[in-house]
């Protein structure tokens, strides 16, 4: 033990480098990421009456409202599947994404004491809420399963893509979360702009409507939103009603990876100021 320990040497210098990721350290602290996520899960529904049922109620009632307004009143097309299951299969991923994103973006400011009183890889703080949100996603999935039985949907082989799609959504929410949470340490404007931004993003994502509602020549605009490809593929791989749009998924993948990597770099380059500013 001591012999091992004598080899340990740590040098602290002023930080200038952009790319300075200590993988060894991330590995050493990995349990902490798990504990942070676990803490989020444990405290989320403390002191509520119906507890984790909120994870079911939120998407369920949104689906009902959407069905009443957009299907009954606005006659929204839905790729030929019943509107409730159409909107729910999109909402499921959307709600995971929007909750993870908003918690992640506020996470650094909300955990100010963790920044100013202990050392740990800062990147875990905005990552944890995106991990813990997956539990809610899993719970809400049960309603979709019931609906699929009810409407006689059978997922095809493309269901194997589901983990990949969820993982990409996780990367996307984390990536934007890295950007926004780092900015929020300095400018609290993020706190106010974010709910608004998420709301707008919903309207340019194919949750309420299918992506093909927009004319061929303008569809590329919709695909600039990385959630477009993900929500479309998520729905298609679960319901199997149309083939998975691989081009759209590929565009999302490129955008997601770009955002995720640049987010890490941005957080890494600003983290040295966090404790002084927060």
């Amino acid at each position: 033990m001591t012999e091992h320990a004598t080899d340990y040497e740590l040098v602290i210098r002023p930080k200038y480098g952009l790319l300075d990721i200590n993988w060894q350290e991330l590995k050493e602290y990995r349990e902490l990421l798990f504990f942070l996520a676990l803490r989020e899960i444990k405290i989320r529904y403390k002191q509520t009456i119906i507890g984790a049922s909120w994870a079911l109620l939120q998407p369920f009632f949104t689906m009902i409202v959407f069905t009443l307004i957009f299907s009954r009143l606005a006659q929204m097309p839905s790729d030929g599947v019943p509107y409730p299951i159409f909107s729910y299969s999109g909402l499921l991923l959307w709600i995971y994404f929007s909750n993870a994103l908003s918690q992640s973006s506020n996470s650094l400011v909300d955990n100010a004491t963790l920044l100013s009183k202990v050392y740990m890889p800062r990147i875990f703080i905005p990552t944890a809420p995106c991990l813990s949100g997956l539990v809610d996603y899993g719970i809400a999935m049960s309603i979709l399963a019931v609906m699929m039985v009810y409407y006689h949907f059978m997922p095809g082989i493309t269901i194997l893509l589901l983990p990949l799609i969820v993982f990409m959504t996780f990367l996307l929410a984390s990536g934007i979360g890295y950007w926004l949470s780092s900015i929020c340490v300095k400018y609290r404007d993020v706190k106010f702009a974010l709910p608004f931004f998420i709301q707008l993003l919903l309207f340019v994502s194919p949750v309420i409507y299918p992506a093909n509602i927009v004319g061929e020549n303008l569809q590329w605009l919709l695909y600039l939103n990385p959630m477009t490809g993900l929500i479309g593929a998520h729905r298609a791989c679960l319901l199997g009603h149309i083939p998975v749009e691989f081009v759209g998924l590929a565009i999302s993948a490129v955008l997601t990876i770009t955002i995720f990597v640049s987010g890490i770099l941005y957080l890494k380059s600003t983290e040295k100021y966090f404790a002084d500013l927060v």
Binding site: A5, T6, I12, R13, P14
Partner: peptide
Amino acid sequence: LSRITYPTEGEITMRGRV
């Protein structure tokens, strides 16, 4: 020393877990 904030100048070497 606990790496919560970074120095503006200088260098610290610590030969052990902190």
